[in-house]
Nucleic acid binder design. Structure first.
Lengths: 252, 252
DNA sequence: CGACGAATTGAACCTATTCAAAGGGTGTGG
DNA sequence: CCACACCCTTTGAATAGGTTCAATTCGTCG
């Protein structure tokens, strides 16, 4: 009905999902908890990491498995999720290059808490728990950074609990789109394009609702001129409008 | 209708909510991240803490205020919560002696993420961010413990997101009762009595529903012989039965 | 171009919320 | 020690919002 024929998404398709040494060092230097290290220190850190490529939809780790690795995304997008007993999917977070997941914990006998799935082709840097521990011992400042990030994630999770508790579907969805726009948005003619393949299923799994409800809400947003959207892509055309719907984002 | 006249709760009423030096040291030695310190080290840590008493319903800190302190509960119960714009209350966690809240983060310009309210009379040990930082620098093992606890809390928050996303009210409530039983339960004639003043409002705020819905579910549980409950108290009489309703607690 | 997967839309159903009113337990003050 | 007032709790009935099931349309890729 509206002019939105072709997908404006540009999806990278690298045949080999491998990263050069250069890329590895650049990525590691962008990871928040390594940012402040010197080149020499980074080189030491780099030596402890291994590298692994994944294709779309590959599982990187599964909730419940023994947690032995910490993962850093060098390239690509990773989806953190749970599955309910009924098979319903819950998306907990969407991560991009420079972010980590897996086990920052130091105790043994831990298991991965979430399943991580490659949402695009991805290059992942991995490090064993003991090797990571070695870094923490050697550079105490790193662990403080990790702590800050965990704090931020806990805050985000609490906010989500809040929203699931009190907001209706359309408000939750609007909030999700805004956050995705901040994190993955790129300015285009269609508006702020969210550079991720996002199906209605994915959005539903983030908002804690069904595909159909997500679709209805998105249709309404589009009718109201707040977004443009097609098959597996979304762009925000009226940020202020969406904010008006999301309403309560930060409150006491 | 059922024989449940008097509340079986025993609520402590200390006139002075203050703790002796003995209690302080004992509490600090129970805090998970100080557990492994020697008595001499604990004494050092103890000197950096201050002490403050609170009465029922007192606010200990408010979400949004500059986060300058980390709090350790010496005695009493503390409720972590948010308020929605519509005034609805969301209970994020219920803490007891030996647990901490507030700001373990090291960066400045942080604000408290949750509001903390004394649920009983309480004695709280506080420590400034810089003093806590001093402890972390001096005893690097402490920060690793803190990290583990943050991991555990993040996991709990993710589980709650999951439950809010896929489970109906009665299943969520059953799960909440089970967790409360594990944490606060004391065996009695009535069953596993949850040693906390718990109104239907509180339960609703934990389950992300309304007082009335919580009440209906609790009535049903009682009819089915799963719990005994009265004004602001709950006891679990059939744990297995509740588990059957809660159903999906730990899954992939 | 054809086929498959994604998105949309409709209608019936159901769960949970809302609004309202009545029934208890607790603690306080007479 | 009793009685009353207050607040918590329960229950009912009407409503709204979301889910479910089903059918159709639309895009994208081979």
């Amino acid at each position: 009905m509206v002019a939105r024929k072709r997908s404006p998404l540009k999806i990278k398709v690298t045949e080999e999902h491998q990263c050069s040494v250069d890329l590895r060092l650049r990525i590691l230097s962008q990871v928040p908890f390594f940012q402040h290290l010197s080149p020499a220190e980074l080189a030491f850190v780099n030596r402890l990491f291994h590298e692994k490529g994944f294709s779309v939809d590959d599982l990187i780790c599964s909730a419940g498995d023994p947690a032995e690795q910490l993962f850093v995304i060098a390239d690509g997008r990773v989806k953190l999720l749970h599955y309910s007993l009924t098979g319903k999917e819950i998306v907990l977070d969407l991560l991009t290059a420079g972010e980590f997941f897996g086990s920052p914990a130091t105790s043994r006998a831990e298991v991965y808490q979430d399943t991580a799935q490659a949402q695009t082709q991805a290059c992942i840097l991995t490090i064993g728990r003991d090797d990571f521990r070695q870094i923490l011992d050697r550079y105490p400042s790193v662990v403080l950074k990790v702590l800050d990030i965990m704090s931020a994630r806990l805050k985000a999770a609490h906010e989500r609990v809040h929203q699931l508790s009190v907001l209706p579907v359309d408000q939750r969805l609007a909030g999700i789109l805004l956050r995705l726009g901040d994190k993955f948005g790129e300015p285009r003619e269609v508006g702020l394009l969210i550079q991720v393949r996002l199906s209605r299923d994915d959005l539903a799994a983030m908002a804690g609702t069904t595909t159909e409800s997500a679709s209805r809400a998105m249709s309404q947003f589009q009718k109201d001129g707040l977004i443009r959207s097609g098959r597996e892509w979304v762009a925000i055309s009226d940020r202020a409008g969406l904010e008006g719907i999301a309403g309560e984002e930060f409150e006491t």
